[in-house]
Amino acid sequence: MLEAKGITKVFRTGFLGRQKVVAVDNVSMAVRKGEIVSLVGESGSGKTTLCRIILRLITPTSGAVFYDGREVTRLRGKELKWYWSKVHGVFQDPYAAFHPFYRVDRVLYQVFNLLPPTSYEEKKRLVHEALTSVGLRPEEVLGKFPHELSGGMRQRVAIARCFILKPELIIADEPVSMLDASTRMGIVRLFRDFRDLNNSSVVFVTHDLGLAYTVSDRILIMYKGRIVEEGDPVEVMEHPNHPYTRRLREDVPLMYRKWEGF
């Protein structure tokens, strides 16, 4: 469904852009319909850059992204709007996704700009329905400002946008890393429920190997701008090939086994 081919992104920094940083280095990946894929990597591995390229927020230095066989790497205008109605992003810090001066209603109603026009009554109905689907009572969030909601609630509002838009692919960049343990699972579950309901695909971009392992159908391990390992989560954890994956597996704190020497 979604295919990225040979994506490279070079950022230039320093005086006159003389220093180059290769954030993503010749990466190819694909996402199939109805699949939950996790892109795992530590900070600086290029996973967020790759996800911003897929979301068409930035353009790659080279390579191309295809959606349903159609190239979307440099879409603009009407066509970009079409693409964004199919592929939607949910980000780490729901605070940053909300303009602090506007009520949360605005974030929800803005989604309708990506959809064919409908009446206000219909929009209102859809907003209420979406909020209920993500476990919020419409009256407890509508009319509020972002700072009046907790982090978990803001992330739920962000996901409610998906329930209105019904995209075919959600790209979720560290969607639970700022949330507390007990609210984390609820959010992860929403993504899975959304997938089950709409047969959409979800890409989790995360540093959390445990999250990736627990919920995904397939994981991709990213290291220094490259995808170094890919496959079924159980398989990858049991038989990691790349040294980085092996190190990651050894260093993640576990619940049922103690580290050697600890």
Binding site: A181, M185, V188, G210, A212, Y213, T214, V234, V252, M255
Partner: peptide
């Protein structure tokens, strides 16, 4: 709600 890369965690699910 703990998610660790261990079979126990995946079997338990969400």
């Amino acid at each position: 709600s703990v998610m660790t890369p261990e079979p126990e965690s995946r079997q338990r699910g969400i």
